[in-house]
Design a protein around this nucleic acid. Sequence first.
DNA 1: ATTAGTGACTAATACGCATTAGGGCAACTG
DNA 2: CAGTTGCCCTAATGCGTATTAGTCACTAAT
Lengths: 350, 350
Amino acid sequence: MAMSGKRSPARRPTMKDIARHAGVSQSAVSFALNGRPGVSEETRDRVRRVAEELGWRPSTAARALSGEGAATVGFVLARPADTLGVDSFFLQLVSGIQEVLAERHLGLLFQVVEDIGDECAVYRRWWAEHRVDGVLVVDPRTDDPRPDLLDELGLPAVVIGGAPDERHPGLSTVWADDAGAMASVVDGLYALGHRRIVHIAGLPGLAHTERRVRTLRAEAGRRGLSEVESVSTDYSDAEGAAVTCRVLKRPAPPTALIYDNDVMAVAGAATAAELGFSVPADVSVVSWEDSALCRMVKPWLSALSRDSVAFGRTAARELTALLDGGSARAVRVPVPRLVERGSTGVARDA
Amino acid sequence: MAMSGKRSPARRPTMKDIARHAGVSQSAVSFALNGRPGVSEETRDRVRRVAEELGWRPSTAARALSGEGAATVGFVLARPADTLGVDSFFLQLVSGIQEVLAERHLGLLFQVVEDIGDECAVYRRWWAEHRVDGVLVVDPRTDDPRPDLLDELGLPAVVIGGAPDERHPGLSTVWADDAGAMASVVDGLYALGHRRIVHIAGLPGLAHTERRVRTLRAEAGRRGLSEVESVSTDYSDAEGAAVTCRVLKRPAPPTALIYDNDVMAVAGAATAAELGFSVPADVSVVSWEDSALCRMVKPWLSALSRDSVAFGRTAARELTALLDGGSARAVRVPVPRLVERGSTGVARDA
DNA sequence: ATTAGTGACTAATACGCATTAGGGCAACTG
DNA sequence: CAGTTGCCCTAATGCGTATTAGTCACTAAT
């Protein structure tokens, strides 16, 4: 009567089933499977075998409910839908994150939202719904509401790409030394004779953008270069091209362009070519992000290369450490390395 | 004694708290908040207000445990880590998916794995762990183990990009008519005088690859073209370039190249240029995927353009319909439209 | 006036797991 | 030999929600 004709989709086995099959109590099963004392090694083995046989897996829901956490970490990407275009960084980052999370059978709850306000709302909801044990935060800003929020919620978090922040001792940080990288890039360009340099920067509010801009200014000041500047963009190929066009049409155009991502670098290089500038004879191009894209144009673009997958792995490891009760740390990953390809050369007027 | 000095991270309010504040029982709260009969409108309102005030959100863990499902949808991407390079499709797809899921407060559990075997293991685990209510399946294969598995587990699923499959009436499908698109592309090229066409296809096992290959063969046969073929690749820029190089070095090189994605198309166009072939004078290039990439090379690439975000939205909607108890359907999204840009033209020998 | 019915609510239970509090039983201890 | 300890195990709760089975007061029908 109760059973209707519907397909019966293989009931999930529970600890009760195991207990019955093994002839012990549920508690014994729990002890056995969680490595707790209270059962003999013999029983433990038997229980394990039965569990294996039945294909048992703990219900995360039940686990979460009895205080063990949700076995899930969250990742929010705050970007207008149309902005996530050709961008290999995030997928690679996520891929690295997964490698580490998968080892521990942690799930990754992923969400794309419009802006940082929505992102905060998501954190609040996840927290209230008991959905995640911790989160990975990307694109830290100079004036960022998220650390405070996460502190308030007591949600373990790792900030990816942010400089260490002594005001939030609860948050871990994984970051690259953009300042050092920028200094070395400027160093290299200076050595090649470049004196007029334009940095086509990314979004102005982002922490790493600010670090790069500041460092560029400092380096320029140190060398007495007045025709060095940063221009903010939205990372899109369109703006990259537009800015390139604008600066190259000046009476004294820059001889070197530093783009904050690969998309803009490629678009910029193409624009330069259209305007009759030869790369690298007339203008050198550096991409602050390496990817297949940089090898799809002629000449190949010199680029700052970093291992985004490893970056993700590191971040995920820090988060798991935090979840295990470890204390927060700031981890610096290796400075991105400049891969010299065909797009950088001696300055024309040098 | 019990309370240590640790920060106390704002306890989550539960229904019990609401009940206490509103002066009713927990059951009344449950009825009130879920729109069940059994409470007066007055009480319902009061309870709602209190819940709002306290910032209450149902614990997904508890919900899942009491049979309501996990309020989560799964998405597995089976790709070797190094293969997820410059690919805008998936991020856009996911972005579209999220739009729909977010409305219903459904989470998206995301996982990247190495191969389809791992993917199946993930489904099994998610199912056993009670983690997801349904999944979105991408990259359907011609001989695919996943539909059977999902049937067996009784896990609602939507296959993205697969043709309708009458053997799995439980699965919904959202697909584009590759066959029609391929036919129209061949039509267009034929009209321009092209007789020797090479299709640089994607991975051989994929369903949509096979559909395109079959259609190309049929179209060629219908017109009596003997020098038309498909070559399988792994979607990488490297293979795209390699195949392009190989076919263009033939005694009678093709006059038109159809690439199964934007990455290969760009790499191929560059290779053609290096070999001294002018695009489109000597060889026409069509990209089966439109993105900013296609507008980063000269000439801009003609491409089959589809709205990936909308595609994702449609898929997500089908899944939510399934979760609501709807029956499976096969939905066809609009045929991708060929955007003519500078890379296609009249065949040289026409 | 007794009964049936209804609306508004409370009590009790289930979900699957972890954990705490026991309950026997054997081997020591004094 | 009673008392203690240690081992292996079972019984009983709790987590937060949904649901089912009552309870109680009051109205409508017989």
